[in-house]
Every structure is written in C-alpha cells, then in structure tokens.
Design a protein around this nucleic acid. Structure first.
Lengths: 203, 203
DNA sequence: AGGAGTTTGTGAACGGGAGAACAAAACGGG
DNA sequence: CCCGTTTTGTTCTCCCGTTCACAAACTCCT
C-alpha cells in the first residue's frame, strides 16, 4: 500500500513527503505508518520527512518487487482471462509466463498474447522458468487437485480465487481472494443500516 | 466463510456436523467458530453438534443473504467483464442489474446478457431499482469521481477494485480488493524463503 | 434410570496490533 | 552559534480478537 501511495506521489511530482501526507495517501494513521517503516530501517529525516524515490526503492527492495517474478495462471475462464490481461501485475514486477487450462477446447485461444496451453505442461513450465508463484482461477471443485499438482511441480506460493479452503504442505503459502464474500460483508452492513435507521453505524 | 462451508457440507449430504468439522471446512479454529456462532444465538445442541440446514438458514438470515441485492458494475474492462459473468454473485443473492461504462464505444456490447449502458444512466438506474451496492472496476484515475457520483445517486456501499484509496462521506461503506497486493505478499514470503534457506519460515 | 462419553457455550488468559504521547534529531532564522 | 519549529522514531498503553480450558447439557448404552 505504501509502495503504491509513494508511486502516486512520485507521479504527481512530489519529491519529499511527511509521514502525515503519506499516511493520508495510503489511508492509515501516521503513527502506524512510521512504526511500519521503522521495521525496515531509519529512512526518514527528522524535521523534513521522507525522500519519495529513496523510500520507494527501499520498500520495493524489502518486499522483493525489484526482481521479476514469473507467474503461472491456471483456469482461463472469465476470471483467468481478466487476470491474464490485468496490467497491474506486469507493472508491479510480475510476469505471466503461461496460461493453463484443463479444457482442450481452450487450447487454441490466444489470451493476452499467450497461448492457452494444456494443464499437463505445468511441470515443464515450472522447472523451465523457475516459477514459484501460481494463480488458481478454476472452479471450486478443481482447485484442490490443481494446488496439489502445483505443489508437486515445485510451486511454493499460491493465490487462490476459487471459493475453497486449500490444504497444502508446510512451507507452501496460500492466499485467498473471495470476491463474493466482500459483497456479502457490504450487504450485511447495508442490512443493518436500513434495519436500524436511527441507530449508530459502527464502522 | 461458514455459510459457504455449510453449503459445501449440505451438498455432500451431511445433515449434522460438529464445530470441529465445520471449523476444518472453513479453515479456522473450532473455539473461534463456536464463539462466532454464539453471537448469533444458541443454534447447536450439546453432545450432538449443529444441524447443517438450520444453521445455514440462520447465518444467511443474519447476514442478509436471504434477500436479493441489486448491484451496479461500473467499468466494463477485463475485470468488469469477468465480474459481470461471475456466477458466484448470483448464487449468493446478488443480482447485477446494470453495467455502465464511460466509453461510448462499449455501449453496444452485450455482456452476460446485459447491455453496457452509459455512465450517465447511473442515477435513474439506482433510483429505479433501489440499488444500494456499487462495484467500481474502472482505472484508478476514474475511481474517485465514479465513487462520488455513486454516493450522490444514493449508493451507500461500494466494492472498489481500483488501486486507489477512496474518500467517501460517513455512512457509506467501502471495501477494497487489490489483486496485485496479494501477489506482492506472496512474493515477499517467497523472497524470504529463498533468502533464508535454513531459517524458520514464519507463517 | 444412571453413568460414561461427547459436544456446545462461555469465562479467563494471552498475544499482538493501533493510537497517543514524547524524546531525539534535523533545519532555519536571527 | 543558539534557540524555536518541525518531523521522525519509539515507548507505553489500551483494546480487541484468538485460543485455552472447563462447566453445562445432551445422547447412548447398559
């Protein structure tokens, strides 16, 4: 978040910023921001603030975005399609090296300049391109078996868009994004708003 | 999460489950699950467990998924396309009533059985269909102005996929989904794994 | 009917993140 | 060169979510 806020400030021509400004851009409290940055080191100057470019590089280096991360996307349905075309990945150091799908009917398609290939090619792609990160955009029923194959092939980080809990061996990281849960949370608050029109709304 | 886990169990033919089973399905600790459910009421039976269907209905009612929520999606690029076609929304009580885009070239397209309409139609759609929830899938630069228009039109809950912090008046809920930040988190752990091959991996 | 075995619901302890507050450090003006 | 101003880095405190642990409650078997 801070990285993106800094990028925004840099594009706006700002060269120096205070913790207060940066915190506002990132949508957090300034004390929290300073504490977070202090874990990386002491990159600010008291009485002045932070050098935008310098801090940006330090954060990028720390979280590993200075290098390029090859990524494989499995499941080229609507969501996989969108992810393959999502420009935000490339601009943040991620390179989609392959699109895989189990459905042979999709294997002729070209999406985002890449051939959709057979899921059977997973192992060779992972070893060839040293892929460590895999994205699962398949239906829920297929997700666990795809994850198993990924882990067997050597992938150690998985981003899961399927609405299922994945079980993976220790040492493998999984993060889950569930689009409809976010909507459900909004619906819940919405219901409370309309149900209790005079009551206080808890943020 | 519990709701989805329960749906999965119900589809598998389970009629009764213990907190331990349900917690495993949802990927959480069983004590936490019991405490969470206790906030809704006392819907379990000691020595037996929870009735899957009954508990499912109680949770659905509590979070407001028994009713149908009309939703508007603004920004029909790759992501908006995918969201419009995402079946998980409809099956969870959300109905996409309109797709809007500022680009007139897109206004003839039909996506997911809906015409892509002009962003100018926002106000009439919101009032006509009593829409309370809006989804922003536009580029970052447009997100804030879209949010402002949404709020002015009467929308009180926004799901934001654009990589920007939105500022909205009090009483309006915003939730943010950032696809590349999830990847960055994985990349960070990945870097630590390879950088410290003998060190302990912190979950 | 009664006791053994389960499983829920909840009180208590633990841990960690978030904000307030302040000392240390850098800059600028006289 | 010194003092006031600004802003960082850090400590202290508070609060909330998570987990442990156990009593209450229910079932089943004898």
């Amino acid at each position: 978040m801070y990285l993106r806020a800094l990028t925004g400030l840099a594009e706006g021509g700002t060269t120096t910023c205070s913790s207060e400004e940066l915190a506002a851009s990132a949508g957090v409290n300034s004390a929290k921001l300073r504490k977070d940055l202090s874990y990386l080191g002491s990159y600010g100057t008291r009485g002045v603030g932070y050098d935008v470019e310098y801090l940006r590089y330090q954060i990028a280096r720390e979280i590993g975005v200075t290098q390029d991360w090859p990524v494989v996307i499995v499941g080229i349905g609507n969501l996989g399609h969108a992810l393959a075309n999502y420009s935000g990945f490339r601009s943040r150091g991620f390179r989609v090296v392959a699109l895989l799908d189990a459905d042979p009917d999709r294997h002729d398609e070209v999406v985002a300049g890449l051939d959709v290939r057979s899921f059977e090619d997973l192992e060779s792609i992972v070893t060839e391109d040293a892929v460590a990160i895999g994205v699962i955009a398949t239906p829920a029923v297929a997700a666990q078996s795809v994850a198993d194959r990924m882990v067997a092939a050597g992938i150690t980080s998985i981003l899961n868009f399927a609405p299922t809990v994945l079980t993976v061996p220790e040492g493998v990281d999984v993060r889950k994004v569930d689009l409809s849960i976010e909507l459900q949370i909004l619906a819940y608050h919405e219901q409370r708003k309309s149900g209790l029109p005079t009551a206080e709304v808890t943020a």
